[in-house]
Amino acid sequence: MKEVNHFRRFLLWYLATTIPLTLIVVLVLAPGMPPGNGTVQASAVVADNTVFLGVASVIFMAVLVYFVYSLIAFRERNPSVVTEGPAIRGHPQIQLWWIVVTMGIVLFLTAYGTIRLLEGGSGGGQGPNPIAVPSPPAGTKPLQVQVIAQQWQFTYRYPAYGGVETPSIEIPTNTLVEFHVTSLDVIHSFWAYQLNVKADANPGVDNIAYAQTKGPLFFNVRCSELCGLWHGYMFNSGRVVPRAQFASWIALQQRQFGAARRSLPPYTRQYFPTPLRRG
């Protein structure tokens, strides 16, 4: 009888704290969290994080309130005397329910993650043969941009524009951008924060990630895999601009870097860092 009482009180504490907290998290805090709504992928991660934060607050509060309640309710009121508690050694039904509930949560999180991942790749690097390819906005073609990482800078090649290689990146609005991330030396990682794109750059590997732009946007690019001495300085920024502006920008790049392009190797998906066929 006493036990029922404790459990009911715990439950009341739990519901009283968790329901408002979860509502605040899900409805107020999470939707406004970074990285914002600049691209479809960024919006997706904000939505996913809202779901996860909701689940997290429900679980977190359950354990936290349980601990706080137990520590208060079951504290030894007279520590100078050693009294023994009840010799309870387990409860098969509680254990069974615990397994069922945690299994349910786990399967939900995995299923949710898998579905969301397969919908549009979530902006993560998918290797040379992507399985989750988002469909481009009606009437547009995907734009390929190759991201070439090397110690310690990113450059970008636009195969659709003669393979021009630029030190900065601009992409048009309302376009599906297909990033081909590769490296010339060590492992880097291309993290375009506001686009919510992250793909490791491995030497000799073509790692594909997608971002579907919406309106104009400024975004930061950072290397997020330790790549040596100046890793901390390996960042630049880019812009999502309207199509007309993009066209004039890329034309400018072609004029500016056209001469340099002739001395570059031909466009390829994989570059190897060292000369072939050593002795």
Binding site: G204, Q270, F272, L276, R277, R278
Partner: peptide, 9 residues
């Protein structure tokens, strides 16, 4: 067999 370099020579 990256870069066809499983065996060189």
């Amino acid at each position: 067999d990256l870069n066809r370099s499983w065996k060189i020579g």
